[in-house]
Design a protein around this nucleic acid. Structure first.
Length: 897
DNA sequence: TACATACAC
DNA sequence: TATGGTGTATGTA
């Protein structure tokens, strides 16, 4: 393994130049195309090994067709200069013959079929159709253009090789080695050295080892990543309290308000007041443009001198470093004064030097099996703000007029059609001339930018741009001082562009795409489609093969074909991408829609094992639901066979469920159906999952989507009668028990809505299967009699259940939703069904007709809930708003409106 | 609505 | 030793 000394080039630019020099005679040339290959004595050895592997590939690969969906994704990744073909060959070689590979081939064929269908369809379009389609597309374009909003400043912050960087920070010896974080099954991320071998996130460890035999694989440590993530979020919250975390290492911020001095600024002024005495000299460099790395200052050098002596001290200093910001009223520019460690002393900074290697990132830092929890999503520290700080603080900052705003204003005032007409070309012209009409908008933007001739506006604009750059630099710098990890950032007028921009100068860089239409169009013109959020390998393949479109401008030029081939949604989405449009709302108010748990295991093929696993998963899911105070009306299972075929099955429950046994009763049915369908062949699984959807907040009055009797009475006479009779009969069943309603325990069951399935579902006994010889022995081709599966009541005792360690606690408190009043009741002991019936009885007698309307008016309808949400959002714009709920880490935000 | 598929991270 | 887990969105039947 290479020693640190041999990798000195990492911190020495001259050595770097020499060490990374390309040598055509070396074996590494087999793998790497560019001059970015690390060459040292030891890496050469690796290269020799790889060279041998390649020979094998060449020999064995003759009759194997390429499976492009398995290819290394190099469009997003910083894999420039790698010999993609050869890396792909090694991947292919390692995968060939496996069940995974066979499945991938199958899926590739399916995609190919789709492509052929689309091609056939396309060949059938008449010219007339195309002309009409273009008109339709242009109309959409026009609408989209009118909605273009350049007024927001959105930042996408993305930590560089996050997990790997954390591990290298904590064990500097890893810095000089190609290394990845994850396991043999899957890697979450890799450091930049490993990426030079094609090792990247989402790749199984054993394949990575084939690409890079010296690869060090470090186990994930999510507690650590989460903790550091909170530190990062503390910094982000200073700039936008409502920032949107996308994962542990990535977030979107809208810093528009911050820049205008409306948010964060006040707090920061408070900081200045408090900490002015601690102010130290050492001005941070200003005026640099995007992507330029920080330059150290005198102060930084001094701190470095200290920190070099002792790593521990260094860490302490870095953590305690304070940032003091003074806003100059005269210039309205932010001047950053800081005390920090010398940047060179920090881990990861070595990659600053490697920037010319042009390593980018494609698929960083997958969160593998990271379990979302309350603490994670809500534990982010929010800066406290005093009343005085809330009300504008000490300094009044005038928002600097944006060119973009002016541009938008002018665009609104003029007729869009008129402006656009100048640059438009008809389909016929475009196709006949074989030219792109991409530049359609230039006419309009020339008009829009006429105000630029006014000198003061230009000066203000430049000042604003500088400020934006500085603010984001400062943010990244703060993150680095606090965590000793570097972040990259993209700044743009919308989320889509900000994300693309954050990749532009990675690692440890930033890129500002200014809010000017011309600049945006220039930026996206050659942007590979795969860079766009939502365009993955399949969409890319379709767009490339069918439309022959690789870039945004090419996509735009085929808009008439898009219109004819794809759904309106997809078409609009593609048009937005091609125009550089995206969401300008960093929306954190998204509600979770589903919750699931799944796991991969060694083959399971026996029904009792299937059910035991299913029960285990239901238990896990139930815990998650409880932790989030959620119930679910849809319960689904996911199965992956040993051939990697995935099946999902879902059932809608008649009332919301949360308890393990409730979930299991539904999941089990679905599972048993699949076991039966598979019969007489065993159901051979490698993965099982359970999902809960149609979630309702526990305790919400309208938790259950099933209408209550009361609401039905109000709405519909016929339904009312039916419901009443149903519940009345149930009530009658237990009419002898009429005590006061209270929390009692109900043996699994929820009143009568599903009485007919109650005992067969919830109380069914998976262990009964054990009684059947054919199911308890090793699974062969034995037919499992259908009537042996899932059709048994839970008459087995607890002891029998526990024999499989999947015991069902019959004492588990169970919450039921009363069909009359809609409330939840939790039952903890014995004759609960009786008690529940008693409640319903009482409830029915209490709910006299006159009370119906009153009660029902208290029910929050969905619509009301939405408007309440809207109000919440609006009120959150006030300075006195309460802290907003943080979204869950793993929520994905659509980048289009 | 149910399911498969695609996608992000 | 042998290709993950969690969640969203969308098209189709």
């Amino acid at each position: 393994m290479a020693s640190n000394e041999e990798f000195d080039f990492l911190s020495d630019e001259e050595n770097f130049e020499n060490d990374w020099k390309f040598d055509e005679n070396d074996d590494i040339s087999t793998y790497i195309n560019s001059s970015t290959t690390p060459l040292s004595a030891d890496t050469n050895k690796e290269v020799v090994n790889l060279g041998k592997a390649m020979t094998i590939v060449a020999e064995n690969n003759s009759n194997e067709r390429k499976v492009s969906r398995m290819d290394l994704n190099t469009t997003k990744a910083g894999m420039d200069g790698l010999d993609k073909d050869k890396i792909n060959q090694i991947i292919l070689e390692a995968s060939k013959g496996s069940k995974f590979y066979e499945n991938e081939k199958k899926r590739e064929k399916q995609v190919q079929k789709r492509i052929e269908e689309l091609q056939r369809k396309m060949a059938s379009f008449t010219n007339e159709q195309k002309v009409k389609a273009k008109q339709a597309a242009d109309k959409i374009v026009q609408e989209l253009e009118q909605g273009r909003d350049l007024s927001r400043t959105i930042v996408h912050v993305d930590m560089d090789a996050y997990y790997a960087a954390v591990e290298m920070r904590d064990d500097p010896s890893l810095k000089s080695k190609p290394m990845a974080v994850g396991g043999s099954a899957m890697l979450c991320t890799s450091n930049y050295l490993a990426r030079r071998y094609g090792v990247r996130a989402g790749m199984p460890g054993f394949i990575a080892k084939k690409l890079c035999p010296n690869l060090t694989i470090v186990r994930t440590n999510f507690d650590k990543y989460t903790k550091i993530s909170h530190e990062i979020r503390e910094v982000l919250a200073e700039y936008d309290r409502n920032f949107l975390p996308m994962s542990l290492d990535e977030a979107y911020l809208d810093i528009t308000d911050y820049l205008r001095g409306n948010e964060g600024q006040n707090k920061r002024m408070g900081e200045v007041k408090e900490e002015e005495s601690k102010d130290i000299e050492g001005k941070h460099d200003t005026g640099k443009i995007a992507g330029v790395k920080f330059e150290s200052t005198d102060t930084q050098e001094n701190v470095c001198a200290e920190t070099k002596e002792n790593d521990k001290t260094k860490t302490e200093n870095a953590k305690d470093a304070k940032f003091i910001v003074r806003v100059k009223q005269e210039t309205k520019l932010v001047e950053v004064k800081q005390e920090t460690s010398k940047i060179e002393a920090l881990p990861n900074h070595d990659f600053e030097v490697t920037k010319q290697v042009k390593v980018e990132r494609a698929f960083d830092d997958d969160v593998t099996k990271y379990k979302q929890n309350e603490k994670d999503s809500e534990g982010t520290h929010r800066p406290n703000r005093t009343e005085a700080q809330e009300t504008k603080g000490d300094i009044e900052l005038e928002p600097i007029p944006l060119k973009a705003e002016t541009a938008k204003h002018e665009l609104d005032e003029n007729s869009f059609n008129q402006q656009k007409g100048e640059g438009m070309i008809t389909v016929g012209q475009s196709e006949a001339q074989g030219e792109s009409d991409w530049d359609f908008g230039h006419g309009s933007s020339e008009n829009d930018t006429s105000f630029l001739h006014e000198e003061p506006a230009v000066a203000e604009q430049e000042m604003f741009y500088n400020k934006v750059e500085e603010v984001v630099k400062e943010m990244r710098r703060k993150i680095e001082v606090k965590t000793q990890l570097t972040a990259s950032a993209g700044i743009a007028p919308n989320m889509f562009l900000a994300k693309v921009c954050s990749d532009k100068n990675k690692p440890n860089g930033q890129f500002y795409l200014k809010p000017e239409r011309d600049k945006i169009m220039d930026f996206v013109r050659e942007l590979p489609l795969r860079k766009a959020f939502g365009i993955g390998r399949v969409s890319e393949q379709i767009l490339t093969s069918v439309l022959k479109a690789n870039t945004c401008s090419e996509l735009y030029d085929r808009r008439h074909l898009m219109q004819l081939l794809f759904t309106p949604n997809a078409c609009t989405n593609y048009l937005e991408i091609s125009l550089g449009l995206g969401s300008t709302v960093v929306d954190v108010d998204r509600e979770r829609k589903s919750m699931s748990t799944e796991t991969t295991f060694k083959e399971i093929n026996k029904p009792e094992e299937h059910l035991a696993k299913c029960h285990e998963l239901c238990q896990e899911l139930s815990e998650s639901l409880k932790a989030h105070r959620l119930t679910a009306r849809k319960i689904g299972i996911k199965l992956k066979t040993i051939n990697f075929e995935v099946k999902t099955r879902v059932v809608t429950a008649s009332f919301p469920v949360q308890q393990t046994e409730e979930l299991f009763s539904h999941a089990k049915k679905l599972l048993v159906n699949e076991i039966r369908s598979s019969s007489p062949e065993p159901l051979r699984l490698r993965l099982m999952g359970v999902r809960a959807a149609e979630l309702c907040e526990k305790g919400m009055v309208n938790e259950s989507k099933q209408p209550t009797i009361i609401s039905l009475m109000k709405k519909n006479g016929s339904v009312r009668e039916r419901s009443i009779s149903l519940n009345a009969s149930q009530a009658a069943e237990s009419s002898k028990a009429c005590g006061p309603e209270q929390e009692v325990s109900l043996e699994h069951g929820s009143m009568s809505r599903e009485d007919e399935v109650r005992h067969s579902e919830i109380c069914s006994d998976l262990t009964v299967l054990d009684d059947h010889p054919s199911t308890s022995k090793e699974y062969t081709n034995d037919h499992v009699p259908s009537d042996q599966l899932g059709c048994h009541n839970f008459h087995g005792n607890a002891k029998t259940e526990r024999s499989s360690n999947q015991a069902v606690s019959r004492e588990e408190p169970t919450t039921f939703n009363c069909p009359v009043c809609g409330r939840d009741l939790t039952f903890r002991s014995g004759n609960a069904l009786l008690q529940m019936n008693r409640h319903v009885d009482t409830c029915l007698s209490k709910q006299a007709v006159p009370g119906v309307l009153k009660y029902d008016s208290g029910q929050q309808t969905n619509k009301a809930k939405q408007s309440s949400k809207k109000r919440k959002r609006e009120s959150s714009k006030n300075t006195n708003r309460t802290v907003k709920r943080k979204p869950m880490d793993r929520f994905v935000t659509k980048h289009t409106k």
